[in-house]
Structures are given as structure tokens and as C-alpha cells.
Design a protein around this nucleic acid. Structure first.
Lengths: 336, 336
DNA sequence: TTGAAAGCGCTAACAC
DNA sequence: GTGTTAGCGCTTTCAA
């Protein structure tokens, strides 16, 4: 039925080994021969059988990305960065969406990965020791985004610094009752670090991070809205809020709108992400270079796969505070 | 090094053929034998080699999704729906991000796909005849989202109806100068249909769709903002605008904000999508069931791959107008 | 119900 | 520089 390497070999008057070498650009092939083989292959519209090639070589030319979600800004943006880099190297991208680690049964992936890919990129699964250990046990080159793990290259932001930056910004504006919208009750490392940053900034300013000032937003818009609503319902609500993600901040803004409160003017909001739509909502946020993070992780993985690089670099990418209308000096508040 | 089917066969005291049959749940295997084989395989932690299995069987257990983007709401949401369905059937998901068809060189995929996947889902590439024809020439089961093609199953919304619905809503509110923010100068079928819906509604109301009322937003937030800005700069700007996508409507809202114009109160905006954040921005939009579309396309493809279904159904999923603050009756405008 | 054996199409030693 | 050949690990007739 379909053209095989033998057809090409025959038509070009050489052996299959030569065809293989010629087409893959390996050395020790006469330039003329190579050219002829290429021409013949093109004429016959020959395409190597990936299955056969994989079986014989043991390489798959494929990378798996394991991610909790595909359809959320952070994750789809990371994916896009990864995809770019892999495409440049002609490596296929296999996506495993494993769901919220807090609620989903577990990675379906570990056993699947064996023999299926040459490398793995894991995107921000909270440090869930047994699962990640399983994953690494397969012995595949691996690269993490958003989680640190000893011996594994990773790319993260400095979560503590980001949390501190956002909180400090609110403090600098004169706020003293600063609430925090965090993710889940049982925090991932990244979430814990952001919380730490908040606490550090508060204490550094002589402020007390009361537990009544914290609400959980589960990293969703709806969760953020609920969290803000709950903060507002308190006897003595905060005058400013640090949200751990833009999505939750969006929800918080929504809650404020519903209560007829102006973000910035009445209650200040700052968060972390640099979501595509944060500008639109005039949200002050600590931006992280998300697509970049995907690119870096993919590049690190490719280097490892080629054996060029065995270092397990823990890369930290920079974040930048982008000040917008959701944080306005307290002085101006009274005018509003 | 790693466990092969032979190790299992030996340990279970049967032939490799029996192991293969037993593990794949094929008939004609003694229940006891099957059980024993399963147990032994589990004990040895045996995993079939996908490459070998593919080479021998000719099946890959993999589906490719070809999409212009990963990191935009519509596409990531579709992907997520597809991923759900494939995962349930234990089929791998290969993602090819091919970029904006208007600017990218072309599908890098056609030749890649051969032998690599058992089926393909193509997401809204504009009807670009040669490319799609190439794609179909490979003879792989294929399923389209957002494009119709003779002989190929597809899932779409009724774009014309959606455009009409949004425009009619604006007309019903009393608007007469209704602008349109479309995508690109050279329209895809889907875009053309939305435009047609707009024109139909306008003419049906005895209104004239002037060309000065149209601006291109290229389906991006920034593009939408530029388009709205250009509409506003006209001597006689529209009092309402139909945007072909939520992202462009977001941009348009941004433009209004910058000009101190209140969306809804001063200039009404309606669009198509049902973006996750449209509620947040109080945007009236014709919602499409995007994740659902992905699910349906994936299910149709799987059915085809199993040969259960050879029909090339052209499925149309329903849309729903969601009215929000960005369209407020003209009567109330004067009060604002 | 089970086994033997012939490939699937390619790669990688090794020999020439 | 090129050819020969032995697998890679599985699936699938065909016989038994």
C-alpha cells in the first residue's frame, strides 16, 4: 500500500541503510547519493513510518506535557510557549490534562508515558510527593514549571517576592487592613510562598495579618468573587486586598461592582499573573512571563534530551509590578 | 532492560500471542489463563511498547488536533473538550499549533500526520481549499470544528443566525446607526456568515449597513480596541456596535472607557462567544457551547475511527443570547 | 483455546 | 561510502 524505505532504496539503486542515512542527514554519505535519494524520496512522496522508526531507534520524537488544565489562561499560555519551541525542533507535543490535583483521582499518566515520549514537562502540580516521585521513576528527562524538585530542572517565579511586592505596594499606598484571597485551604508550595510574601510584607510594616482577613478563592473567578463577598461581609472589612491570581482578582472586582464599590477608589486590589485581560479590567498585578516560562522549560528539556546538559537548573524568571487603576492612593479615596 | 511481552509469556507459561490476546481483552482466551497473564503482567509491571504495537497493528491510538492557536479562549476551551473525550477512550492527544492562517506559511502537518495518528480534528482554519484538501488526501478520519466541508463531519454554530441575533437585539433597543467590528478584510466562511447575519438584520429593519460603519478587529482585544477607536473618530459614530467576537468586544469596551464613554449607557455593544469573562465585563453576547463543540467533534471522530459511523454529519449547535449591561435600552441612555 | 511464525518498516552494528 | 543483516516488540494469520 504505502511507500516504504525499500521502494525508495530500489528506485534509487541503493540499500535501505543508505536511504536511512541520506534522509536523516547522517554523515558518511556521498553528496551525490544523498541528493539522488532525496529526489527519489520526494518523487515517491515517501514519508518515514514513525512507528517503525521509533521501534528501531527507541526514540519517539515526542514530548508530553502534563497539566491540570488546558482551558485556563496560565496553562494555555504556558502550553503555547512550549508548543512553539517543540515545533521548531520538530518534536511532537502530547497533552495530558489531569485536572485539579485536589479533586482528581491522580495522574493517569505515569504508565502511559513509558515508551511513548522522550521527555516530560510537568506544569504546576502542587508538590504531591508520591505522584511526582512515580513520574520521575520512569527515568524520563523531565522539566517542571511552577514546582521545585531536587534534581529536576524547573522554572518558577519567586512567589514569595511576588506576594511581597503586591502587598508592599498596597502598604505603600497607606493601607493597613489588607486582606488576602488565597487559593485552597491546603496550600501548594507556590501558594504557600505567596502567602509568606504577604505575611512578610505585613509584618515588615508592623501590621498584623489577621486570619479574618483571609478567604479562599480556589484560583477561579467565581471563587474570587465569593471570597471577596465574604471579606466584605465582615464587621470590619479590609481597605485593600491581595489576590494570589488575576482570575480571583477578577472575581473580587466583580464582587465589588455588585456591592457598588469602586475598585481602586474604595477598595484597592492587587494580584499576581499579568493575565491578558488584566489591563482591560484596570487591575494592578505582578506580571509573570508565562509564555516565556513554557519556552524555557521546553528548551531545557530538549537540551537534556539531547544529553547536552545534565544540570538541573532551578531557573527563576523575573516578575514586574504593573500598577493600574485598581490601586489608587488612599488619599484620593476620600474624594471618591 | 525493560520487560517485554516475552518475559510475561515465559513467566505465565504461555505464548506471546496469548499474552497479547489476554491483555487486550480479545475473545477466545480461557478466563483462567487471562487472569494468570494479567497477574503476571502486573507483577512484572509490564507495559506494552507503543511503538511495537503500532508498527505491528498499524494503529496509533492517537488523534491530532490542528488549531491556529492554543492560548486563546475559544481554542483552549475547544481543546479541553476534545481532551476530555479522548481521555475517556484512552486515546492520546497530539496538538499542532499552526498559527494564524492569514500570516503563517501553512500547515506543517499534512505529511507529519501520516502514520502518526488515526484521526484528525481541525479547528476553524478558514476555508483554505488547497490546504484542507491536502489534509484530507491522507485519507485519515477527520472532523471539523467551525468549518463545513463536503463529506467531512463538522460541528459549527449557525454564524449567520448568531450575527443576526446580536444585531437584531441592538435594533430592538432602538439603535439605527449600528457599527460592526469584523475580523479580517478577507473573511473566512464563518466570518462572512456573521457579517451576512448583520446585514440581513439591518436590511430587515430598513437600515443601511454603511461601509463606514465597519472596522476590522482581527479577532484580538487590541484589534477590537483599535477598531472601536476608529469608529469613534468618525464624524457620525455609531450608537451601537456588533463585534464578531468577545475578545474584540473587550477591546471595544476598553476603547470606550478610554474615551470616557460608558458601554451600554452611551454606546451599546453586543458580540458572539460567551467568553468566560464576558459576564465580568457585563457584555451582552451570543453564547456558543464551545467545550461542547470540542466534545462533539471528538466523539464523532472516535465513532468514525471505529468505523461505527460513516455519515458526514454537519452538526449545528445552538447559541443563546445573553443580555447584560453592555446593551441598555436607548431610552435610558438620555438619563445617563 | 492456544502456539508457531511471519512480518510490520525501520535503525544500527559491522563488514566490506 | 555503502551494503548486509539482525533485531526493535508486538500483532496476526494459520494450524493445531
Amino acid at each position: 500500500m504505502s511507500i516504504t524505505i525499500r521502494d525508495v532504496a530500489q528506485a534509487a539503486g541503493v540499500s535501505t541503510a543508505t536511504v536511512s542515512r541520506a534522509l536523516r542527514g547522517l554523515p558518511h554519505v556521498d553528496p551525490e547519493t544523498r541528493e539522488r535519494v532525496r529526489r527519489v524520496a520526494a518523487e515517491l512522496d515517501y514519508v518515514v513510518s514513525p512507528s517503525a522508526s521509533r521501534l528501531a531507534s527507541g526514540r519517539t520524537g515526542t514530548v508530553a506535557v502534563i497539566t491540570p488544565f488546558i482551558d485556563r489562561w496560565f496553562f494555555s499560555t504556558v502550553l503555547s510557549g512550549i508548543s512553539d519551541v517543540l515545533q521548531e525542533s520538530d518534536v511532537d507535543l502530547l497533552v495530558y490534562e489531569v485536572g485539579d490535583p485536589a479533586t482528581s483521582p491522580g495522574l493517569p499518566a505515569e504508565r502511559r508515558l513509558r515508551g511513548r515520549v522522550d521527555g516530560v514537562i510537568v506544569v504546576t502540580l502542587p508538590t504531591d510527593a508520591p505522584r511526582i516521585a512515580d513520574m520521575l521513576e520512569i527515568g524520563l528527562p523531565t522539566s517542571f514549571i511552577g514546582v521545585r524538585w531536587p534534581g529536576v530542572p524547573s522554572v518558577c517565579i519567586d512567589d514569595a517576592a511576588a506576594g511581597r511586592m503586591a502587598t508592599q505596594h498596597l502598604i505603600n499606598l497607606g493601607h493597613e487592613r489588607i486582606g488576602i484571597i488565597s487559593g485552597r485551604p491546603q496550600a501548594s508550595t507556590s501558594q504557600a510562598s505567596r502567602a509568606l510574601g504577604y505575611v512578610t510584607a505585613m509584618k515588615g510594616a508592623g501590621l498584623t495579618p489577621e486570619s479574618s482577613l483571609e478567604a479562599h478563592g480556589y484560583f477561579t473567578v467565581a471563587g474570587g468573587e465569593a471570597a471577596m463577598t465574604s471579606l466584605l461581609s465582615q464587621p470590619n472589612p479590609p481597605t485593600a486586598v491581595f489576590a494570589m491570581s488575576d482570575d480571583m482578582a477578577f472575581g473580587a472586582i466583580r464582587a465589588l461592582q455588585r456591592h457598588g464599590i469602586r475598585p481602586g477608589g474604595d477598595i484597592a486590589i492587587a494580584s499576581i499573573d499579568g493575565h491578558e485581560l488584566s489591563e482591560l479590567l484596570d487591575l494592578t498585578t505582578v506580571g509573570q512571563p508565562v509564555e516565556q516560562m513554557g519556552r524555557i522549560a521546553a528548551e531545557a528539556l530538549l537540551a537534556r534530551m539531547l544529553g547536552q546538559d545534565d544540570s538541573a537548573d532551578e531557573i527563576t524568571v523575573p516578575t514586574t509590578l504593573v500598577v493600574r487603576g485598581s490601586t489608587v492612593p488612599v488619599e484620593r479615596t476620600s474624594a471618591g
